[in-house]
Design a protein around this nucleic acid. Structure first.
Length: 354
DNA sequence: TAGGCCATCTGGTCCT
DNA sequence: AGGACCAGATGGCCTA
């Protein structure tokens, strides 16, 4: 593996640029990368025990040299004596090996992050609204995935069809504005209905934005649940100013899980779909809640998206103000719900688009 | 120019 | 000892 790493120039960026030890050895490091690569290829990567034993021998030598000069340096000024293993003096050989270790560790870390990113890419593909041109950011991918899992598990648990608005609301919980737009657009949701309720739930979280409640004179107009009827204060959500179609969709206040609009409550029962995942209650504290979603409306596109001119998000400022709805505008020609997706997803979308 | 996102480096910690 | 994992720091790129 390391052979691959170090034979791949792309995986060996300029180490000196970042490393602190580049300064301590001046121009000597200019050839370091090549030297280190040679070292790896020739000794470590083929498991050259001779080299390793030589290094061990060097270590022994170093120790002999190092141990002696630690005495007397521990009490510097008023500072107490340092505890723990004595610091060994950095001989040139030791410095070299240290550098080598660092380079190897960097390479490992790089591949580890690459693996992580490719896993995230895979996740992007199985989550609703995969787009090659408008990649969801990492954090948005994770949030959407969480919501998606939640939505699917709720469908399985209840065994009945939720309405599209609620489904999209569930998917969009805690997502940034662009991602919300993307999801809603993907599912061809009538933005007016969805956004109004979304804002009801979020309590105007995105209030400064173009599709704040101010954009629409009515609130929760679509809600049919008695809990959300004007004048009804019986529902817990109402006391907090929330109106959610979860009430009507999932049975309303009878279910304690929906006391929080963030549905961060007990995720029970754990469900497994194709054995790929299981919901696991991890407490009510969610990073999203802690962070507080400081997303504002300055987004005009998705993170990572590049200006194409064709992707004015449906719910963006101009669209919302001009009353353009997703059903009328379809700027998502380059995105699709999925190209590789589990069967359940197709069923689900057929579910809503029949 | 500020802010978001990202890749990378780095040192620390834990585990084998 | 070395690898995996993690979090902080840093700098680049892009957009509003």
């Amino acid at each position: 593996m390391l052979t691959r790493l170090f034979s791949d120039p792309s995986l060996l960026p300029d180490v000196q640029k970042y490393s602190g030890w580049a300064e301590e050895s001046d121009g000597e490091d200019s050839k370091m990368k090549e030297d280190e690569q040679d070292d790896m290829d020739e000794s470590e990567l083929r498991g050259d025990s001779r080299t390793q034993s030589e290094h061990a021998g060097e270590d022994d030598e170093d120790e002999g040299v190092d141990e002696e000069d630690d005495d007397g340096e521990d009490t510097e000024g008023d500072r107490p004596k340092k505890r723990g293993p004595k610091k060994r003096k950095m001989t040139p050989a030791r410095i070299e090996r240290s550098k080598l270790r660092r380079v190897k560790a960097n390479a490992r870390e790089r591949t580890r992050m690459h693996d992580l990113n490719s896993a995230l890419d895979n996740l992007r593909k199985v989550v609703p609204c995969y787009s090659k041109t408008q990649k969801l950011s990492k954090i948005e991918t994770l949030r959407l995935a969480k919501n998606y899992i939640w939505a699917l598990s709720e469908i399985l648990r209840n065994g009945k069809r939720p309405d599209l608005v609620s489904y999209v609301q569930t998917l969009c919980k805690g997502l940034s504005q662009p991602t919300t737009n993307l999801v809603a657009g993907c599912l061809q949701l009538n933005s007016r209905n969805f956004l109004t309720e979304q804002q009801c739930q979020d309590g105007g979280r995105y209030g400064s934005g173009s599709f704040s409640m101010h954009s629409y004179p009515y609130q929760c107009a679509r809600l049919s649940s008695p809990h959300c009827q004007p004048g009804s204060n019986s529902h817990p959500l109402r006391t907090h100013g929330y109106c959610s179609t979860y009430d009507s969709l999932y049975g309303g206040s009878g279910s304690p899980e929906y006391n929080s609009p963030e549905y961060e409550g007990p995720l029970s029962p754990p469900l497994c779909i194709n054995g790929n995942f299981s919901l696991k209650h991890q407490g009510s504290a969610s990073p999203e809640n802690e962070k507080g979603y400081h997303y504002s409306m300055h987004y005009s596109g998705l993170p990572g998206s590049r200006p194409t001119g064709a992707h004015n998000l449906v719910f963006g400022s101009s669209g919302a103000r001009s009353g353009i709805h997703s059903e009328n505008v379809l700027p998502y020609h380059d995105m699709h719900l999925h190209h590789e997706r589990p069967p359940v997803y197709d069923e689900l979308n057929a579910f809503f688009h029949n």
